[in-house]
């Protein structure tokens, strides 16, 4: 009964009409299959992860299923280790640089492609290739191109700047990190470009024509028409992009594959390495929980600021 009044209240508020044939339990039956599966493979694992993060789970006792309770030790170990703060900082730098270049290049290319231009459909297909290629293949290909002797990049560098210009991309962690950033910028531009292009095409042409009659300059049109109208498209894409970049394992994993130090890792790739190369499952679970909290606070701050603007 209570359920029903709540529903009615909601309908009045939102003004939706109820589906004619809906009975009290219909939504439940339709939701049931995915609900059951998601409970088992998403919800339960999440709780399980919190549970393991307070336990000592290593390769030795993994199969036994008996994991001793160690309280906050995993968390203390992480939060007292300078490695965590260095990696966190590196992750923030990684995310900021990547998202910045994805959006600026993506928007820039979208604006160019939104003009009347013969041959632009071919250009669009060529520009979308980095998104179409499976990520790990893209990353391995770049890894080959960063090879110190036979990689295309160093060959080009030495051709233009002499034999000393070759850069040890894969052996020096600082350069590996830069190599990973270049690879990931390459991978991520097409998504932003296509999103911006979709947004640009939905802006009515009349706005620009009106601005033209008022004698507005190109920059004024961009600042006063394009950007504000594109905002509802760019903002969610930027948030998604930020989260995806923050969580991007494969590029870092492939580019730094075989490296001995952790000096080019970001948080998620560090979790992955600690769990599946060093078999420190409890520790990794705790680190995962910390990452989860960081992402949750990011997205809730974002949602709140969105609501304030509305």
């Amino acid at each position: 009964m209570e359920l029903k009044t709540l529903q009615n209240k909601k309908q009045n508020r939102t003004g939706h009409s109820r589906n004619m044939a809906q009975t009290r339990w219909t939504p439940f039956f339709f939701l049931l299959p995915s609900l059951i599966v998601l409970c088992f493979i998403v919800l339960y694992p999440l709780f399980y992860e919190f549970w393991i993060s307070f336990r000592n789970v290593t390769l030795l006792n993994l199969k036994s299923g008996k994991y001793p309770y160690i309280g906050f030790q995993n968390y203390i170990q992480i939060l007292t280790d300078p490695l965590f703060y260095k990696t966190l900082l590196r992750t923030l730098v990684w995310t900021a640089i990547n998202v910045f270049f994805h959006i600026t290049f993506g928007l820039f290319l979208a604006i160019l492609l939104n003009r009347k231009l013969p041959g632009k459909s071919i250009i669009r297909v060529l520009l979308i290739l980095p998104w179409a290629i499976p990520q790990y293949i893209g990353a391995i290909t770049w890894r080959g191109m960063f090879n110190i002797e036979y990689g295309a990049i160093n060959i080009l560098l030495t051709k233009f700047f002499g034999p000393n210009a070759a850069i040890p991309w894969l052996s020096d962690p600082k350069w590996s990190f830069i190599a990973a950033i270049i690879t990931n910028i390459w991978l991520g531009i097409p998504f932003m470009m296509m999103t911006c292009l979709g947004g640009l095409q939905s802006i009515p042409q009349e706005f620009y024509e009106a601005a033209d009659t008022d004698g507005a300059s190109g920059w004024q049109k961009f600042k006063n028409i394009t950007l504000p109208l594109l905002k509802p498209v760019i903002t969610p894409a930027a948030v998604l992009g930020t989260v995806w970049t923050f969580n991007m394992i494969s590029v870092i994993y492939v580019i730094t594959y075989g490296a001995e130090t952790e000096e080019a890792q970001i948080l998620v790739s560090l979790v992955y390495k600690k769990a599946f190369s060093y078999f420190r499952y409890g520790y990794s679970a705790a680190l995962s929980v910390i990452i989860f909290l960081i992402l949750m606070s990011f997205s809730s701050i974002f949602i709140k600021s969105q609501k304030l603007e509305d």
Partner: peptide
């Protein structure tokens, strides 16, 4: 969709 891959991978793996 915001979870990192490791978030559910690790518990699912165990």
């Amino acid at each position: 969709q915001m979870f990192p891959a490791t978030m559910t991978l690790l518990p699912l793996y165990i």
